[in-house]
Design a protein around this nucleic acid. Sequence first.
DNA 1: AAACATAGCTATGTTACAAAGTCTTTCCGT
DNA 2: ACGGAAAGACTTTGTAACATAGCTATGTTT
Lengths: 203, 203
Amino acid sequence: MSRNKNKMERTLAAKRSDAIKSVVAKESIPLTISRPELLNNGTDRDFRRLVHNIFAFMARHETIRDGHARQIGLAGIEYTILISIGHLGLDGDVNVKTVADHLHMSGAFVTTVTSKLQAMGLIEKTQDSADRRRIALAVTDKGKALLRQLAPYQSEINDVEFAPLSKEQFHALLKILEDLIASSDKAVALQQYKSTIKEHGAA
Amino acid sequence: MSRNKNKMERTLAAKRSDAIKSVVAKESIPLTISRPELLNNGTDRDFRRLVHNIFAFMARHETIRDGHARQIGLAGIEYTILISIGHLGLDGDVNVKTVADHLHMSGAFVTTVTSKLQAMGLIEKTQDSADRRRIALAVTDKGKALLRQLAPYQSEINDVEFAPLSKEQFHALLKILEDLIASSDKAVALQQYKSTIKEHGAA
DNA sequence: AAACATAGCTATGTTACAAAGTCTTTCCGT
DNA sequence: ACGGAAAGACTTTGTAACATAGCTATGTTT
């Protein structure tokens, strides 16, 4: 593919290159966060580690979720939506929009997945009598039985996944995540605001 | 939430309530974790909140990442891989396998994405002279310039996203995540072990 | 020198979503 | 009371983010 770059004079050129590199290094990896609390020695290295760790944990967590889902013959997202319906159902009425907002996905997608779950007999979709635009979602007995069947297996794996969490860390993490969800919403809003500005504003 | 768990005065009513709860739990939504540290009042409600919060945060975080990527004309995964190459490059040689393992994805996929990045002139792919099966990956000056251009924008958004984190929380989170990554790896291994048992073992 | 393992590439498929358009129902201002 | 406007759900269509299988080239072991 790409050829050798000048391997000839490794003296002056190399030094110059190194010098440039060090200058470039400072400039080439600029800070991606500015809050001093998150900087270490003037670098954002720890912050990048955090971001990377989030990514790495997410990947593993998702793998585990998919494994749980497959255990009962569902795709990962089907399992997630099924459980969310049961979960949300404890707090009030559940419809397509509720789930979509809750999981941060489009209503259209929730429609298709819930229709599949309905075809499998795991949830019920009934027209809401109060507002007939809405479709009430509920887990059927069959769906509950499936989740019940999964539980012991799931519990065993979850115990391992979350083994390192003490009770205090557990609650600390819960709180931190809630705060981060709220702040992330703000960040998303800011991002969208800035991108609309950019589209309509000066070139 | 959790009332006094004074064991002295375990009244009859309390015992009955527990009995009912356990019956209900059996029929509706059984526990998905068993560690008592993560249970509240005998339910896994808080744990499920945690799991849901992880999901919710992930969704927002990913949205933000995609926004950063689009800001410089890249797809989310292209940006992630580009940055990972730069990041991993600080610690040693980077090749397709390195990146694939690091990001938990197939080598084939890394191949296609890096080829695209190469076509855009953002990274260099050179054959490793020591092991000519390997392809060394490095961010080009053009790639660095692109990241540099993104930084101020990105930093502004990141400051908002991670605003609620104190320095202590930041480090606590970093540690917790590292532990969780390790334990999740174990959980994934257990899961895979169990599924192979299931395939070959008793019907 | 077999035999096997490892790294990467190509081609093909699958899945998890979103955007846009349509239909029906509800709300809201006059 | 009525004519939009908006909201909720559905259908269609598209796309990004992956994985799998099969191949080649190189390296390693015996």
